[in-house]
């Protein structure tokens, strides 16, 4: 594998593995449909009870919002922080240092490859579900921006989870941190509730943090809001997060000690 080709090969191999494992994909999709149906029903009932509008979202907009946010989260391995932290804490990551490629890079591209087939499947199923239950997207043209935004969202999330998990180089365990990280995406990332529906102080706090790039941005676009600046913000956050995760892994790798290794 040449230096130039390893990211593509890594991602493609991981993607093919996920596609071949149909049972796992089926479980992911059924779970996705379940969550979307429940959450979209809740929000549509709430919109109906509030004169057809909550925080600027109508029934169709909120449904497209929900199918998008859920796709960004369910397509990912939600225990990535714990899994990565365990590999670091146990020293298993040391074997990866022998490769002529960055440990972080291989892990990120591998996870991206695993995630993309699930993301595409969830987005397609979610789109059909939204069409059937709530009708066409409020502004179909914005879906063209939502598609790259979805990929940027999961990329930001994967890189951020690695930055988080890198604490295991020092603490030896990322433990249950994934649980709390996930909840930050739920609220500050706009997964459960659109950021416009948060109280002002919390909305302002969320606007300063990277979590909105991981879920809210593509959902805002898919719900009919033509705001290309969201894509720019996502790219900006991706650069920052890659820098943080890269620095953390470089420092951690220098510190790594393997018991009995």
């Amino acid at each position: 594998m040449t230096r130039r080709r390893w990211p593509g090969v890594t991602a493609r191999t991981a993607a093919l593995r996920v596609v071949a494992e149909r049972g796992g994909m089926g479980v992911t999709l059924v779970f996705y449909v379940l969550v979307v149906v429940v959450l979209a029903s809740l929000w549509r009932v709430a919109v109906g009870a509030n004169g057809g509008n909550v925080a600027g979202y109508g029934a169709a907009a909120i449904t497209w919002y929900v199918v998008t946010t859920e796709a960004t989260v369910i397509a990912l391995n939600n225990r990535l922080i714990a899994d990565t932290g365990r590999d670091i804490g146990s020293g298993a990551v040391a074997v990866e240092l022998l490769r002529p490629a960055s440990v972080l890079g291989v892990r990120v591209f591998s996870e991206l490859g695993r995630c993309l087939p699930r993301l595409v499947a969830c987005a397609v199923v979610g789109g059909v579900l939204a069409l059937v239950t709530a009708g066409a997207p409020p502004r179909p043209a914005t879906l063209a921006l939502a598609a790259p935004s979805l990929v940027l969202a999961v990329a930001c999330n994967i890189v951020a989870q690695h930055a988080f998990a890198a604490t295991a180089f020092w603490l030896r365990d990322a433990g249950s941190a994934w649980f709390l990280y996930q909840k930050l995406i739920f609220i500050l990332g706009g997964m459960l509730i659109p950021l416009e529906a948060l109280p002002g102080w919390l909305e302002r706090t969320a606007s300063l943090l990277p979590f909105r790039a991981m879920s809210y941005a593509p959902a805002r676009l898919a719900s009919g809001h033509l705001e290309p600046v969201l894509l720019v913000q996502q790219v900006g956050w991706l650069v920052v997060l890659v820098g943080l995760a890269g620095a953390a892994f470089r420092a951690g790798e220098r510190r790594l000690q393997v018991v009995g290794g």
């Binding site: 709430a46 009870a49 925080a55 529906a197 948060l198």
Partner: peptide, 17 residues
Amino acid sequence: VWVFFWVLFFRRVGSVR
């Protein structure tokens, strides 16, 4: 966090059914 979500939700939408 879930309690927080529900508090935010019902503060925004009132009651639901």
